[in-house]
C-alpha cells in the first residue's frame, strides 16, 4: 500500500494540476461562479490519419449539467473521452488543440494522463462493475490512489451520494454483478465519486437501462450537480432537455469527394434556448425530430 500512496502524491505535485476545490463551498457562490472547469479550444481528434472531430471550442461550468447531443457518429463519445484522456488508450488516436482544466492544458507534455483521470471521473454507457464485491468496487479507486483515511466511511458516503446505500448496505461483501443494471450503474457512479473528482463525465449512462432506472439516474444527477460539474452524452433529447442547464449540439459533416465524415460543434448554449430558439437550421431540424 505504502509505495503506491507515496508515488500518487508525488505525481500530483509533479503534474501540478490545481487541487480540487473544497466540496463544501457555500451554495450561493455557485450561481455567480463563472470560472470554467474546462476551457476547450480548437479541439480536433484524428483516428489514424482520418479526422473524427474538428475544431470544437466550448466552456464547461462548475456545478452544472452540460448535455452533448447529436446524431449517431457525430463524435459525442470521442469528444467526452478527450476530457479525461481516455482516447489515449485507442491506438492511433491523436488529439490537437487545447483542453484547459482549471486553466491547465491536460494535453501538455508534462501532464500524466493517469493523474488527469484521477481528477475527472467517468461513467460508461454500459454498467461495468468489477467482478468484485460491492465494497471492493467502491474502494478500488481510493486504494490505488493510496487513500489513508477511513475507507468504510468513504465507501458509505460514496454509496449514499449515489443513492444506493439503502439497497446494498447489507450486501457489501456480495458480488457487484448480482445487482440489477440500474443499481450497477449507480454503483459505477459511486465508484467514480469515491476518488473525489470535481467533474463526472457520463457517456450515455442510461441508454442500457429501463425507464425507472433512468429516472433514478437523472434524479441522482440533479443531486450530484450541487457538487460536481457533469457532462453527459446522450442521444435522448428529452433527457438532455430534462436534466441539463446547457446543451451542445454536435453534427456530422461529410466531405462529398472523399465521403470522409467528422463531427463539428454546431452550437451550444442554455438548454432552453437550444430547444426552443436554436440559431442554426441543423439544430432546429434535429431537436424538432426531423432527423437523427
Amino acid at each position: 500500500m505504502n509505495p503506491s500512496s507515496t508515488s500518487s502524491t508525488r505525481e500530483r505535485e509533479e503534474t501540478g494540476l490545481p487541487m480540487v476545490p473544497e466540496a463544501a463551498e457555500p451554495v450561493e457562490e455557485h450561481k455567480t461562479s463563472t470560472s470554467a472547469v474546462f476551457t476547450i479550444r480548437d479541439l480536433s481528434v484524428y483516428y489514424g490519419g482520418n479526422i473524427a472531430l474538428k475544431d470544437v471550442s466550448l466552456d464547461i461550468r462548475p456545478r452544472e449539467i452540460t448535455a452533448i447531443i447529436g446524431p449517431s457518429g457525430c463524435g459525442k463519445s470521442t469528444f467526452i473521452r478527450c476530457l479525461n484522456r481516455m482516447n489515449d488508450l485507442i491506438p492511433g488516436a491523436t488529439v490537437t488543440g487545447e483542453v484547459l482544466y482549471h486553466g491547465q492544458n491536460i494535453y501538455a507534455p508534462d501532464v500524466d494522463p493517469v493523474a488527469v483521470r484521477r481528477r475527472i471521473g467517468m461513467v460508461f454507457q454500459r454498467p461495468n462493475p468489477f467482478p468484485k464485491s460491492v465494497y471492493d468496487n467502491i474502494a478500488f479507486g481510493p486504494r490505488i490512489n493510496g487513500f489513508k483515511g477511513n475507507l468504510d466511511e468513504l465507501v458509505e458516503n460514496s454509496l449514499r451520494a449515489a443513492a444506493l446505500w439503502e439497497e446494498v448496505k447489507d450486501k457489501l461483501k456480495k458480488s457487484a454483478l448480482n445487482l440489477s443494471g440500474g443499481q450497477q450503474q449507480r454503483l459505477c457512479i459511486a465508484r467514480a465519486i469515491a476518488v473525489e473528482p470535481d467533474v463526472i463525465l457520463m457517456d450515455e449512462p442510461a441508454s442500457a437501462l429501463d425507464p425507472i432506472a433512468t429516472v433514478r439516474i437523472e434524479d441522482l444527477m440533479q443531486e450530484l450537480k450541487k457538487q460536481y460539474a457533469i457532462i453527459i452524452v446522450t442521444h435522448n433529447m428529452q433527457q438532455a432537455a430534462r436534466v441539463s442547464e446547457r446543451t451542445a449540439f454536435l453534427y456530422t459533416e461529410v466531405d462529398e469527394e472523399t465521403s470522409n465524415r467528422w463531427g463539428i460543434l454546431v452550437e451550444h448554449g442554455e438548454t432552453g434556448l437550444i430547444f426552443t430558439r436554436p440559431k442554426d437550421k441543423r439544430t432546429e431540424d434535429y431537436v424538432s425530430g426531423r432527423f437523427g
Binding site: 488508450l89 454500459r126 461495468n128 467482478p131 468484485k132 467514480a192 476518488v195
Partner: peptide, 23 residues
C-alpha cells in the same frame, strides 16, 4: 470495459493488470 473502468479511475497500467485483469 473493465480495463477502461480501471483506467478511468486513475489506475496505471500495472495497477490495472494486477488488480483487475489478473483477478
Amino acid at each position: 470495459e473493465l480495463k477502461h473502468a480501471s483506467f478511468a479511475l486513475g489506475a496505471s497500467k500495472s495497477q490495472t493488470v494486477l488488480r483487475v485483469v489478473l483477478p
